[in-house]
Computed example of a mutant assay.
Amino acid sequence: MKSKIRVFAPCEEVCQICDKVQYREASLSDKLKLNLHVMYCKTCRQHTITNSKLTKFIKKSKVKCLDHDCKEAMRETIDKALKEQQHQQP
């Protein structure tokens, strides 16, 4: 069975493709769809520009994420505080 490649994609699909491009997960056909679509869609073109800027800023910022153990400790602390708050309410 032959699969057809649709060149003109809807805006929702193009936004997803834009995100894939940001994380370098887009195929060549996805990139083609994105580039053709942003030629005529001002909204998606602006979204793509904004997304690219965001990616550059995040890379420049050298943000460090918490490791799994820190996240779990924070989650447990928050859960404990919420339970205590619920018990204090009349």
Rank of each mutant, 00 (worst) to 15 (best):
S3H: 13
I5Y: 01
A9D: 00
C15K: 14
Q16D: 07
Q16F: 07
C18P: 00
C18L: 00
D19L: 14
D19F: 07
D19E: 15
V21F: 07
V21D: 07
V21K: 11
E25C: 03
A26C: 03
S27Y: 03
S27E: 02
S29V: 11
S29M: 13
L32N: 05
K33I: 07
L34E: 04
N35G: 07
M39H: 08
Y40L: 10
C41W: 10
C41E: 12
C41I: 11
K42N: 13
C44D: 10
C44G: 02
R45A: 15
Q46L: 09
T48L: 14
N51M: 07
N51Q: 15
S52V: 04
K53W: 05
L54P: 00
L54Y: 12
T55L: 13
K56E: 14
F57E: 14
I58V: 15
K59E: 15
K60C: 06
K60H: 11
S61G: 04
V63H: 03
C65Q: 08
C65P: 01
L66M: 14
D67E: 05
H68T: 12
H68K: 15
E72M: 12
A73E: 06
A73S: 09
M74W: 03
M74P: 00
R75D: 01
E76R: 02
D79T: 11
D79G: 08
A81V: 06
L82F: 10
K83C: 03
K83W: 05
E84G: 05
Q85N: 10
Q85C: 05
Q88R: 03
Q88A: 05
Q89D: 07
Q89M: 11
